[in-house]
Amino acid sequence: MAQFVLQRAMHASVVLVVVSLLVFCGIYAIGNPVHVLIDPRSSQEVIDQAIRNLGLDRPLWEQYLLFLRNAMEGDLGNSYVHSRPALQVILERLPATLELIFVAMSIAVVAGIPLGLIAGSMGERLPGRALSNLSVLGFSLPTFWVGLTLILIFSIELRWLPSGGRGEVGALLGVRTSLATSDGWKHVLLPAVNLSLFPMALLMRLVRSGVIEQANMDYVRFARAKGLSSTRILIAYIFRNTLIPVVTVMGLVTGGLIAFSVVTESVFAWPGIGKLIVDSIRLLDRPVIVAYILIVVLVFTAINFATDVTYSIIDPRIRLGGANR
């Protein structure tokens, strides 16, 4: 077990280094970022000075080693655009994205699970299949398209909700979040709904297939024979048994939402890290791009790692890392 953990940890580090190298070189290959940021009215001498300021005149490998050394100390370079440490810029915007993901996942869970249970209990009958097909809509609709439609309807025509941005930030249980104010909730609702459609559809289908699978099992038949009502069986037994795989997948999906939120944040001008990465790529803000990718890969690797370990603990039948010979 310990060997497995160590092995996985080592793999994760290798992943991080490889990814950081790839990204670092890739961005450098696009060209000199100074020309993007510097005002066209400056003179050549100033441009040269700026290149020196940003350390862009040193050879590539030197720049990368410098970067690695600093990364070990937690310094991932200064954002060119924001004139602050890249890590700080990302961490500043992280709460906004986390808020969005939290509300989106909550909506997905609250709507998706009951719908999935209903769809599952209807099984192969028409309502069940109809709901299942409807869930396909949930992840077939292009996110940006849905977002704009939501804005058009709820923000411009009905004027119920604002069209973008984040609301006022208050304090909830000692944490600064916009979910502490009603203004904050008004702002987060539309983007959260937009973001929730995909996980909601996914959840619905997962629960549904889980329910169908369980419904054929012996213990359900025994329970029915004992005279328990369908609803009771559904909620007390089936649901609980579908929970483990559902929770695992949802864990992975939540992590994926961090990347998925890129489009939603752009449409709704939500000041999170998704919008930050799109802007940073456009402006060649190299430190932020690299820091962002590293953080995302770190989060993903951690989630994968945790999932693997959890799985192996829950289900000892799954052997770790070996083929089924």
């Binding site: 100074v34 510097i38 005002d39 400056s42 001498e45 100033v46 300021n53 004139s83």
Partner: peptide, 14 residues
């Protein structure tokens, strides 16, 4: 103006 560390676009250009 010329001494802002890491300035991406120093105003000395003006």
């Amino acid at each position: 103006l010329p001494n802002v560390p890491n300035a991406a676009g120093p105003l000395t250009g003006a």
